[in-house]
Design a protein around this nucleic acid. Structure first.
Length: 421
RNA sequence: GGGGAAUUGGCUGAGAGGCUUAAAGCGGCAGUUUGCUAAACUGUUGAAGGGGCAACCCUUCCGCAGGUUCGAAUCCUGUGUUCCCCGCCA
């Protein structure tokens, strides 16, 4: 959520910056509602001050055992007027809130302006794409060959898009998760195992709601959503809290399954692991002071890069343009790993700074100095990383001519084997 | 699934329709005293919104949302969360 006062004071700037995010929000309407509301607020507050004085007098009359009937009748009339005004203010508030909640975050000034993913900027390409002197198998052929994944059986029990890992496939998946978790713990992150369902209010906090409602699994009977990312529950750890400045930055890492309906995306990348309804992810979440959040964003990116370097998998880093930024992000890097069989890069991580956008929705604040006013903290998160597409790149990149798959060296102490054959 | 209890500021916790403008303590801040620190003592210290050039003024907020009332932290209804008991269960 944006600061209404900032919108009031800089309406044209807000409009321009929202336009670069392909957002159609009627700022003029919002500001008019805001003006109307404040006018009524002034009127009702004046009446309330009057009523407060009047009820005090009634209290005094009663204490002195005098008749207060006349005052009560008069005060009731004031109360009736207040009820009317408050009713109208409440209606305006509903309208204002609806607009505010559906308004995306403003892009940071450093973000390249662009319309779509075509305008994203490649920051760097790292690692060497292997030169295969044999016919490369894709990840589906490889997993079938070794019986380490079974998409057919999985779809019989859960429908398409829910992977089943078997044997060394399951072990490799778990090795990746362990490797990444321990990597983050070594770098000062605190591991958490959060719930993977969340209340609507938590989903609003991290801004999956209202926009992504149709993309999430929803247990209607209990009104709980399955998390599309660990970000939701990990960031909501500190909802409605006043954080201690000495504790900042707070760094969490956690493994969670993630669930996405991917509504409307059928026909696109439906093969194997490329786009699935359930996948595993190790998430990083940060709570920082406003002045350090952009340095922390670079730190997140570095963690992802270091992991891919240790795994020795080629990747590239994209800086998302304004039009491709997610709803709540002010700035975002996507990290994509190379798939030799698909002959393209696959998105395996994205690192975002939300500035105070989520903190304002969740009411997470800190006091910069002992006596200072509370301020909203900044939140960031990055996938470090999602395993599904990383697994595609890993299997394909590490395949050998005889069809066997070498286990990356750093994973061997977690798998207990060094080749799948 | 059934029954009961709780929910108050950064934290603990009083408070049961009007002398609450939310007690008290802790913590924070400032000062006094003291070789330094600590302790003790004194003072000060909630949040959000609106108005004013300003000192300042007004309103709202006791989990959340409604309601009753001239007036609600307090009464009523719904609901979130937490805890306890019974049942079921890994």
């Amino acid at each position: 959520m944006l600061d209404i006062r900032y919108i009031r004071e800089n309406p044209d700037e807000v409009k321009t910056r929202l336009e670069t995010k392909n957002s159609v929000i009627d700022i003029d309407k919002l500001l008019q509602l805001d003006i109307d509301k404040r006018k009524l607020l002034g009127e009702t507050e004046e009446l309330k001050a009057e009523r407060n004085k009047a009820t005090q007098m009634i209290a005094q009359l009663k204490r002195e055992k005098q008749d207060a009937t006349e005052s009560i009748t008069k005060t009731r009339e004031i109360g009736d007027k207040i009820a009317v005004l408050d009713g109208r203010i409440r209606e305006l508030d509903v309208d204002i809130r609806e607009i505010m909640m559906s308004m995306p975050n403003l892009p940071h000034k450093s973000v390249p302006v662009g319309k779509s993913e075509k305008d994203n900027v490649t920051v760097k390409e790292v690692g060497e794409k292997r030169d295969f002197n044999f016919k490369v198998l894709d990840h589906i052929e490889l997993t079938e060959k070794h019986g380490i994944m079974d998409f057919k059986r999985a779809s019989r029990m859960s429908g398409a898009g829910f992977p089943l890992y078997l044997g060394k496939g399951a072990q490799l998946e778990r090795a990746l998760i362990n490797f990444m978790l321990e990597f983050h713990i070594k770098n000062g992150y605190t591991e958490v195992i959060p719930p993977i369902v969340a209340l609507p209010i938590a989903m609003e906090g991290t801004s999956q709601l209202p926009k992504l409602k149709d993309d999430m699994y929803h247990a209607t009977r209990d009104d709980l959503y399955l998390v599309p990312t660990g970000e939701v529950t990990i960031t909501n750890i500190h909802r409605e809290e006043m954080l201690n400045v000495a504790d900042l930055p707070i760094n969490y890492t956690g493994y969670t399954p993630c669930f996405r309906r991917e509504a409307g995306s059928y026909g696109k990348e439906t093969k194997g692991l490329l786009r699935v309804h359930q996948f595993n992810k190790v998430e990083m979440v940060k709570f920082t002071k406003p002045e350090t959040s952009y340095a922390e964003l670079e730190e997140l990116l570095k963690r992802v890069e270091d992991i891919l370097s240790e795994l020795k998998i080629p990747y590239r880093v994209l800086e998302l343009c304004t039009g491709d930024l997610s709803f709540g992000a002010a700035k975002c890097y996507d990290i994509e790993t190379w798939s030799p069989a698909e002959d393209k890069y696959l998105e395996a991580s994205s690192c975002s700074n939300f500035e105070d956008f989520q903190a304002r929705r969740m009411n997470i604040r800190y006091r910069p100095e002992p006596k200072a006013k509370p301020e909203f903290i900044h939140t960031l998160n990055g996938s470090g990383l999602a395993t599904s597409r990383l697994m595609v790149s890993l299997l394909e990149h590490y395949q050998n001519e005889d069809g066997s798959i070498t286990v990356p060296e750093v994973l061997r102490k977690y798998t207990g084997f060094d080749v799948i054959k």
